[in-house]
């Protein structure tokens, strides 16, 4: 009976240990995400809002999950070069100018990982490598 108790507590300890253990990829994701949060506050929040809600018909929201995942490979270019002209987000048209944001590729990767996994979005990690590749193919 005593033996069974020891085995159970040992099993429990192993489960807790495994659960608390994060993979390298998860750690990297968390690092990108938390770094991106700070960059978002400084560079994006003024226009796009604390919760990515945008501003009336003036600034588009970042909550259109379909838009974000469809344009995943262009998002880095939007930040680097800014955006002009008509854009359809969440079923509404926006026609304003987004200025180019002066961020390094690693900063772009972090802020995109934050935006891409906040406000209802779930695109996973956007790495430095992804951003470097995407920036080569800006339209």
């Amino acid at each position: 009976m005593k033996k069974a108790g020891i085995i159970i507590s040992l099993c429990a300890a192993i489960i807790v240990f495994v659960a608390s253990c994060q993979t390298d990829q998860q750690i990297e994701y968390m690092r990108y995400y938390s770094g991106g949060q700070g960059l978002y506050t400084v560079n994006c929040q003024n226009c796009h809002g604390k919760n990515g809600e945008g501003l009336s018909a003036l600034m588009p929201p970042l909550t259109d999950t379909a838009f974000i995942s469809k344009n995943k490979d262009q998002l880095a270019c939007y930040i680097k070069n800014g955006m002009t002209g008509m854009v359809k987000v969440s079923g509404k048209f926006y026609n304003n100018t987004m200025p180019p944001i002066e961020l390094s590729p690693i900063e772009i990767a972090k802020v995109l990982t934050y935006v891409g996994n906040s406000f209802g979005n779930r695109v996973g990690l956007i790495s430095l490598k992804d951003v470097e590749n995407n920036l080569k193919n800006c339209k």
Partner: peptide, 15 residues
């Protein structure tokens, strides 16, 4: 109206 920095925050709050 073309203010790139603080105006959107200001007018989000003014709303």
């Amino acid at each position: 109206t073309t203010c790139p920095s603080i105006c959107p925050s200001m007018h989000r709050n003014m709303l």
